[in-house]
Design a protein around this nucleic acid. Structure first.
Lengths: 236, 236
DNA sequence: CGCGGTAACTTGTTATGACAAGTTACTTTA
DNA sequence: TAAAGTAACTTGTCATAACAAGTTACCGCG
């Protein structure tokens, strides 16, 4: 009936974290210390720590130690996706920044072509942006813009966010269809976002429609699930 | 420069899953078979499988084997949270059902009281419902209803969904404020949803306001992130 | 035929041991 | 003094071994 040792240990550490014995950012005892504290083998200690990591409560850094994850999440409002993300962040006291990784014409892959209602292989502009929150990588946005807008706005888009740029250039966005889901970091995305393999991520996949239901922009914002959440307000 | 063995193995399996060599629901080779196939120890095989599980690609069942996760996700529309969830599911070909776990008056905990704008400790009705999709547990809803509505509707609520019940009893919901975030199963929630510790979950935390901005319902829908996603459409 | 038990197979838990690799701090050297 | 190097400490990787516990299928007994 008694739970496995590693569960007991990770649950005790979890309670201590919840109680504030270990503050966000604090270093947990090293594996060797935990082995002595609980009188178990290193395998059991590592399993207990893996539990905490998989629950998003801690992150391990090789050579440094295991640290309690900073808990505060940033809320991104979905009710009006046109608002400036910078302002959204600033209001919550986050130092926000982004850097342009890619902006280039490419042939539209199958799902992109379907979303933008164009022929597969037709030219679109691929945009990749990395968002930083208080210096640390927090999210990546990969989006595709229809070709004529990409050509026209290329210079501006490397320095500004996409939605405001569209709005300022008389391209009205009438509707945004979106799906929110949860995934996990693969090896490549882990590199971008500076998180380990399997780290939980949220995906906000959107299609922006201009007048006449004309799709102009399709993309995904992939964010660290431990740093981001989405808020929305629905009215009847 | 070469990646660790367990990464090579999990990446190869991931590619095979992506290529369709292993279909959703298929059983992966057993640990012993993988040990022979890759000529590595069981520790390495288990680490590789843990990678797949943490990426949400596979689920392990003790005594049975490791299976590729059924990929199809059910979309829950947030644009009009009043629609019948049953119908939403049926449209996507899912056999949907729910069972009432709890419906009883309790003293409002601090955060609930704040959300419902009542005094902490005041009476509210605690509701717990378990949602089943194609027979398997998919989500748990824990919600709090203001006391007079709970008393009035207790008989109906054990057999019907909350939002439709409110609508049919002339309690209009004018606005729903919500936050979506990602968490992970602890030991208790893992038991409810029949998932292992650390399994990714999505939380839909909502406050429903009736006329005059009067909060009447506050709750959380906690769902398996591998089975659920949220869709929404925003109009300018 | 049906029920029960067992054998075989599955993943889960835990121990011990060893080396690799990243980080930090101190010490030595130029 | 400043740079280089080293020692100590950290987590990561991987092996072998044994037993626990859940599942399935088969076989024999009533």
């Amino acid at each position: 009936m008694s739970p496995p040792l590693h569960i007991s240990i990770s649950e005790q550490l979890r309670r201590q974290i919840a109680a504030g014995d270990y503050q966000p950012g604090d270093k947990l005892p090293s594996e060797h210390q935990l082995m002595d504290m609980f009188d178990v083998s290193r395998i059991t200690v590592r399993q207990a720590i893996a539990n905490l990591v998989s629950q998003g409560l801690a992150i391990a850094y090789r050579g440094k130690g295991v640290f309690v994850t900073p808990r505060k999440k940033v809320a991104y409002s979905l009710s009006s996706p046109l608002v400036f993300l910078e302002q959204d962040m600033a209001r919550q006291g986050i130092d926000f920044g982004f850097e342009n990784l890619t902006l280039e014409p490419v042939a539209a892959p199958e799902p992109v072509a379907a979303a933008l209602a164009i022929a597969p292989g037709a030219e679109v502009y691929l945009q990749k942006k990395l968002f930083r929150m208080d210096g640390a990588a927090g999210a990546v946005d990969v989006s595709y813009l229809i070709a004529d807008l990409g050509k026209r706005l290329a210079d501006i888009l490397t320095q500004q966010m996409t939605f405001p740029t569209l709005a300022e250039n008389d391209i009205p966005i009438d509707q945004v269809d979106a799906v929110i889901e949860c995934t996990h970091a693969d090896y490549a995305m882990g590199g971008y976002l500076e998180v380990p393999l399997g780290h939980p991520l949220m995906v906000y996949r959107y299609t922006a429609l201009s007048t006449n239901q004309q799709p102009v922009l399709y993309g995904e914002t992939i964010s660290r699930a431990d740093r981001f959440c989405y808020s929305l307000s629905t009215q009847a």
